[in-house]
Design a protein around this nucleic acid. Structure first.
Lengths: 263, 263
DNA sequence: CAGTGGTCTAGACCACACT
DNA sequence: GTGTGGTCTAGACCACTGC
């Protein structure tokens, strides 16, 4: 492998072998390029929805061939960080796109195709700043007692309350977030966080269980306390696997189901 | 695009434009190659676990450059149909591999990492041939009344019954499948189906709900009937999106959870 | 038309696994 | 060493988009 004659000495991506370690850690050129593009994405050099420079431009900028840049972008596209559009360019991925209203929501109506039921109606129950408990802090990589934004809301489809969500966000990164803001933004919450706070959720992990609601939860979802619900605990991450959101959802599955593809 | 001077006139992959249709349907060379490799996989020219010919060999066989074969194989690898191993070759994917014991099972123990609890203990409750009802038939692409193999079993982890599964398989493709066979095979069921019947499950879809068990189900899982369980309905497909299995599972989520990655 | 991503080639060289 | 997949290059041409 060879190093790159570049502005930043390329400290990202794979470490240049701390000498004496078992793995010499070979890193192909295209991965170094990928790391550099990633840095620019992170730094906000190109905003969500915008086009990044053309492959030729990037190749010139990094002094490599177009094919190498291409491979780097292929990787980023595979991770859903950018979207390629033939004839137009490569664009920074965003949650604010027509195509898939809720990229991370895998709940589908039992009847027919998705989306036919229209967008969810949202009802914000509360949104306030609190001190993080031990568990929330640990999950979000904060210290107990740090400020977090806590929100609770109900999503309804065609008038039927279907999802009850509790959301925790690091207070630091989301100063000034209000219930009004959450309620008024027309698209997905993640799109608002992108636009208003520059925080882009890039991937997420979910743990799913079957549970029974307590009395309050049952009332909010208009079901009896003996109705089994899906408990979906999601941790969403920005770049570099930094956790930025914890979300605990209760899903009714009498009219909807969680859909998953395996391969 | 140009056609290929090949044994089979390449009727797979994209149709050569039925004349007069809106889409001229351009198909790149590498996709045609991919289709041809797919046919060989389907035809069993190379068995699961075996190596397919080297990129150079395939390039010579199809009269294209190595790069083009490479792109085709990249696609197949992305779909988990083959596995690349540097320095060794490209291998037909199989469910009978050390690495991931259960490729399609996303239930993990709550405590620590997976696999530490060891393999599941299986207990076959029944395995018999029945006539397909309307719903089963529709899901498996059969006619109502066609023969299907129906099996029921319980999977336990460290002695705790955790999964109750009902499995339906087309009788046609699995003649002679017995309970003894299911019980005696040491690895995943899908590995046995590959080995003994040449049927390879390539992808699957799951619909997940929260439900309460009936008395019989509760007894088998050793829980009370008021214990909410995950209902996981899985349809597994072979090549060409042909459905080959319907599986309805009930998962206990008091000690395990369904894990999913989103991006 | 020019500019973008997408395909295809041919050849050189590298990293890895086996023998 | 030999053979495999993996990287990198340079150049040609194709398909799609929008001016």
């Amino acid at each position: 492998m060879s190093s790159l004659p570049l502005p930043a000495p390329d400290d990202s991506a794979p470490p240049p072998s701390p000498a004496g370690l078992p793995a010499p850690a070979f890193s192909p050129l295209y991965q170094q390029i990928k790391g550099l593009i990633l840095q620019s994405l992170q730094a906000g050099e190109w905003k969500p929805g915008e086009a990044i420079p053309s492959e030729m431009d990037l190749a010139a900028r990094f002094r490599v061939s177009q094919g190498t840049v291409r491979k780097a972008i292929d990787d980023l596209a595979a991770e859903n960080l950018v979207v390629r559009r033939q004839g137009k360019g490569t664009f920074v991925a965003t949650h604010a796109e027509r195509q898939v209203q809720y990229r991370f929501l895998k709940l589908l109506p039992d009847t027919g195709d998705a989306g036919v039921e229209g967008p969810a109606e949202r009802h914000i129950l509360e949104c306030r700043r609190v001190r993080a408990g031990a568990e929330i802090a640990r999950t979000l990589g904060l210290r107990p007692g740090d400020s977090v934004v806590q929100a609770r809301r109900v999503l309804s489809f065609v008038g039927v309350p279907t999802i009850l969500e509790d959301i925790w966000l690091p207070g630091q990164a989301f100063k000034g977030l209000t219930a009004a803001q959450m309620a008024s933004y027309p698209g997905p919450t993640y799109a608002m966080l992108e636009l208003d706070f520059g925080v882009r959720m890039v991937r997420a992990e979910e743990k799913i269980r079957a549970v029974l609601p307590d009395a309050a939860q049952a009332a909010l979802l208009q079901v009896t306390p003996s109705t089994p619900l899906l408990s979906v605990e999601r941790v969403a991450y920005t770049y570099n696997d930094v956790p930025m959101e914890l979300r605990r959802g209760l899903y009714r599955t009498d009219t909807h189901h969680y859909h998953n593809e395996l391969s």
